[in-house]
Computed example of a mutant assay.
Amino acid sequence: MTFDSPGFHSQSIRASAVVFEDPASRQLYERIGRIGPSEATVLVAGETGTGKELVARLLHRLSPRAARPFIAINCAALPENLVESELFGHERGAFTGAVSAKRGWFEAAQHGTLFLDEIGDLPLSMQVKLLRVLQEREISRVGGRSAIPIDVRIIAASHVNLEGAVRAGRFREDLYFRLNVAQIRVPALRERPADILPLAGHFLKMYGERLRMRSIGLSPAAERLLIAYAWPGNIRELENVIHHALLVMNGEAIGPTDLNLPGQRMPMEASHMPLTQETAPPGFDAALLPLFESGAENLYDLVEAKLFQAAYEYCHRNQLQTAKLLGITRNILRHRLKQYGLL
């Protein structure tokens, strides 16, 4: 499923998280479809790099405000002494350097959508003023004396747990409730493993065209590494890994050595000398000999399949316990069990 589905227009959206193939992302897709057409204020939660701004843009495109402006502001990037002026604007002479009046981002987004990213980084003093704006639906420019009515839908996002920030006294509880009318959680990439390869394919096409390269694919070993990796940087990290791989690759397809993944696991290569009881190195577990003697081209898959099968049976085919034993998520476990015909 892509953004070409009804209601979505992909051509002007930055290319990151453009598929909804995994069950977890399909649930996200459905939730966006339900909340988007409303006028509700939305809080988008998720780790850095998961595509929270993209979700906000989709919500805007599904709303009655789709033809109006969409303004995205990173609150963490605003200098503390200029936050109020940036958001609400200022009048001429309001402060040193204010040589002319200037509209703020709220006015720029009039009748449209204002996306406040990293809302948790706003100073407490600004949180109070933002709360008042959301309550009264009007702003006052810095140095101004008149109120300006605003008609703006607010979508806020944060990679930090705002509930925890409220308990720690770093975020106002009343503002949190005002923003959290509807909440959308964007799953981390490790929670949606079926999206990894389609996303990688998309980035291959996008950067391949920019680099004027012919059609490039991934080797089976590279695909296994991408699926096995935990992706702490989420989609943004995957995009960078694919871009880097295209820059350094030498072969016909991207291989494991082209992927700049920390602690990556390399597939085991077959030895030129047959491994037997006589040729095995000291300490080698003889129970593994049948795997080597099978002559399989991909020993890595065989070993991993045996591992997953053994863990699954050891946990009496309980998926939650097996995932915990292997240190992976249940979604990744289910993907592997299906891959190896165990589910």
Rank of each mutant, 00 (worst) to 15 (best):
L289N: 00
Y312K: 01
A323P: 02
N298I: 08
L299M: 04
L307Q: 09
G283C: 09
E297D: 13
D285K: 08
F284P: 06
L320M: 11
E313D: 14
A311V: 12
C315D: 00
T279W: 03
N298V: 13
Q319G: 07
K306Y: 13
A296M: 09
V303G: 06
D285E: 13
Y312V: 00
T322G: 04
R317L: 04
E304C: 05
A311F: 01
L291F: 14
Y314Q: 11
Y300M: 13
K306F: 14
L307E: 06
A287F: 06
S294V: 05
P281R: 05
A286N: 10
S294N: 08
T322Y: 02
S294R: 10
G283L: 08
A287N: 09
N318H: 10
A310V: 07
E293D: 10
L320G: 13
Y314P: 05
E293Y: 03
D301S: 09
Q319N: 10
Q321M: 11
E313M: 08
Y314W: 10
N298Y: 08
N298Q: 11
L289V: 07
E297V: 13
A296N: 12
P290S: 00
V303M: 13
P281W: 01
H316C: 13
F292L: 12
P282T: 07
Y300P: 00
L302K: 09
Q321Y: 09
L289W: 01
Q321F: 10
A296P: 09
P281K: 04
L291E: 05
Y300G: 10
A323G: 01
D301M: 05
G295A: 06
Y300W: 09
E313H: 13
D301F: 04
E313L: 15
F284A: 07
L299T: 01
H316Y: 11
E293M: 10
T279S: 14
E313T: 14
L288F: 12
N298T: 15
L320Y: 11
A305Y: 01
A323I: 00
A280T: 10
L320F: 10
A286F: 10
F308H: 00
L302M: 14
P282N: 07
A287Y: 04
E304L: 06
F308L: 08
A287W: 06
L320H: 15
G295S: 08
T322P: 01
E297T: 14
D285L: 11
L289G: 05
L288S: 04
